[in-house]
Design a protein around this nucleic acid. Structure first.
Lengths: 211, 211
DNA sequence: GGCCTGAAAAACGTCAACTCTTTTGAATCT
DNA sequence: AGATTCAAAAGAGTTGACGTTTTTCAGGCC
């Protein structure tokens, strides 16, 4: 039979592909927050329903029985709350990573830092791929990759995805020295100065939320 | 977040009901950790698939394409990690609740405390209903209900469900003064002594994890 | 006896048709 | 005009059947 949709089809199942596509559309705000999601327009019904169910549990979508699905709304209050919690969680992850980090961890951070400095802010490919957003996610993940708590990392990932939606909207405010901020965080982490690193990270997150 | 679907609460949709049922079965360990889940045995296929998808995103189930679903495994390492993170999250929730709590919050706590002291540890109804587990969940939710951070509460709820699975297994160790521990936490909360309340809560969670 | 081979059976994923609820909009009544 | 009612349209939820992949297990080979 035919293995559907997509120029490159790495996914094994249609459901998986549909899930990834809709999720990317939400995170990139190509699907407006609060807007209604019409199942029939999104692809094969079954696959879509399953994908939306997963996204519901993830907090990117809200569901009401017999009334369909909506993209989760956003608000300044939500951003403020989200940022505050992220500072706590990411901070805890970073502390743990600094305590347990080994050489591969250090290498990963530096590699991600370099990749980011060499990736210009391209205006979003038409296929939906966003290289800048991707390296940014990779960097922040590398920063905490040595954290020894799977649960903390899982929560962190969940919150990061949420923040991505706001980040997409505040783009173009490119007057910040992002690379410099990242650089200083890495320096503090390499020096194993947990307090300083967490402080810098907190400032970084709070600054990002100003938009 | 989630309203259990009992016999008296017929859910509007089959999917919703199936989701609630399977979830309850996992939390109560009627579905053994790590065991394979056969879709055809669980009910109508579509509803089951959708329910399992949601549970996957919630962390109660693992999924591998073309290979079906498994109940998420449990381990001592996972319990230790989970407990550590829970102390942090529940602690943060409790601090916020103590800071922002009003009279209705105080009332809720006392009501839940009383309900628990009057609910004996019944040996699990045949319909799956577990009154003791329910009032326990209600109490811990009431404790932090005045927390002003929706995200913290959401994370807390997620982690609580996970811990419920372990709690089910460690039942019968009824030689602890649970009501007393709960009582002391409430007293500290009412006295607005955040440090003491969090300390007592941490001890409470850690003791529960000893099993 | 242990191991590889391959066909049958089970389970997973996909699809199209059907039913029921919600929504919409036009005609009617106050 | 504004509100109300009811019927048609749209969309959500459910069902059973179909194709594909994985797993099982019996038979043969080393």
């Amino acid at each position: 039979m035919f293995q559907p949709t997509g120029p490159d089809n790495p996914s094994r199942s249609l459901t998986e592909a549909t899930y990834a596509r809709i999720r990317a559309d939400i995170v990139a705000c190509r699907l407006a927050p609060g807007s209604k999601l019409k199942i029939n327009d999104l692809g094969q019904k079954q696959a879509v329903r399953e994908a939306l169910s997963r996204l519901t549990a993830e907090g990117l979508i809200t569901a009401e029985p017999q009334r369909g699905f909506h993209v989760a709304p956003i608000s300044v209050a939500d951003l403020q709350d989200l940022t505050r919690v992220r500072c706590q969680i990411e901070g805890a992850c970073l502390r743990s990573a600094i305590q347990h980090g080994d050489v591969p961890w250090e290498s990963q951070m530096l590699a991600a830092l370099h990749a980011m400095s060499r990736t210009p802010a391209t205006p979003a490919g038409p296929d939906g791929a966003n290289p800048r957003g991707h390296v940014h996610a990779v960097f922040h993940r590398a920063l905490v990759s040595a954290c020894d708590s799977p649960w903390l990392l899982r929560i962190r990932e969940q919150l990061y995805v949420q923040s991505e939606r706001y980040r997409q909207l505040s783009m173009a405010k490119g007057d910040r020295d992002l690379d410099g901020e990242h650089r200083r965080i890495v320096d503090a982490a390499l020096a194993r100065d947990a307090d300083l690193a967490v402080e810098l990270l907190t400032q970084h997150l709070n600054r990002t939320a100003q938009a």
